[in-house]
Design a protein around this nucleic acid. Structure first.
Lengths: 153, 153
DNA sequence: CTTCTAAATGATATGTTATATCATTGCACA
DNA sequence: TGTGCAATGATATAACATATCATTTAGAAG
């Protein structure tokens, strides 16, 4: 993601936060920037290492956990439960609303692709869920895959 | 699951393993029995504790990890990646083939319900995957939900 | 511009989960 | 009944996650 795009995301993030009364503090913004630039899923400890290397500071792990949780709550990053990692949302700067995401996770090289689910597909899944007496809490799906490159080799 | 059902699953598991050249050793069978009786997702360490309590032995954690991995490879238990837990497959003793599973995981009380996906639904998901150049490796889906009871309170 | 307050972050310790390495046991096969 | 490989055990330690309390900082109120 280019510098301008990152900046656009940060601006948009600031706006969305202030609209909903959330505080996008300096640290949180720094971490969000880092996630946007990474464009790959990062664990809290990886975030710590990256941040400390870049900022020559010493963020404790619990801060990284807290900040990532905040960003996930604010829908600025997604939590990939199956990998215990976080990845920047690829639609922060978009203005139009989005359907749920499918995360395709290559179990070999760990790249992640976020694709949209058709509303119809989401509805079908939710139908299964509700007929079992459950309610979906987080309309996203993580799938264990092989990416194009890895499935060739 | 009743005693007879558990036994039927174990018998079926033995047969399936010998057919495919896998060794369902005594330890592995004991762990599988334990998982079948539990009917709930268990972490490797929970398996260790249960086993040690029942058998008055002292299984090291790495053995539990290895055995659970084996059972998952053999499709006798499912690995729930989002929870890092394992749950006995609810269809070991069935003779007919099965479609992929949807695991509905209550994020509050942690109960899990395994429901089947209609082949049509699975196909749609796979279509999304392949049009992104990926291949599904494990046709199962874990969904963060609230169960009936928890969504009431 | 201060002062107050609550939220955010830091420091520290420790609990929990996962894995690496090597020794030992046990089962299949000759 | 040895022999060799797979399975398991023993041990240590790495990696991950969280709990608790101290400190700082940002925003509200005066």
């Amino acid at each position: 993601m280019g510098v301008q795009e990152v900046q656009a995301c940060l601006d948009s993030a600031h706006q969305r936060c202030s609209e909903s009364g959330l505080r996008l503090t300096q640290k949180r913004e720094q971490i969000l920037r880092l996630m946007l630039e990474a464009e790959a899923p990062l664990s809290p400890y990886e975030v710590v290492d990256l941040y400390n290397a870049q900022a020559e500071q010493n963020m404790p792990p619990n801060s990284a956990y807290r900040i990532l949780d905040f960003l996930a709550e604010a829908n600025l990053v997604h939590k990939l439960n199956s990998a215990n990692k976080y990845i920047a949302c690829s639609h922060i700067a978009c203005s139009h609303p989005h359907s749920a995401s499918q995360f395709l996770i290559c179990s070999q090289c760990k790249t992640v692709k976020e694709v949209m689910m058709e509303p119809k597909l989401l509805k079908e899944i939710q139908k299964n869920v509700s007929s079992a007496g459950f309610k979906m809490r987080h309309p996203s799906v993580e799938l264990e895959c092989l990416c194009g490159e890895c499935s060739e080799s």
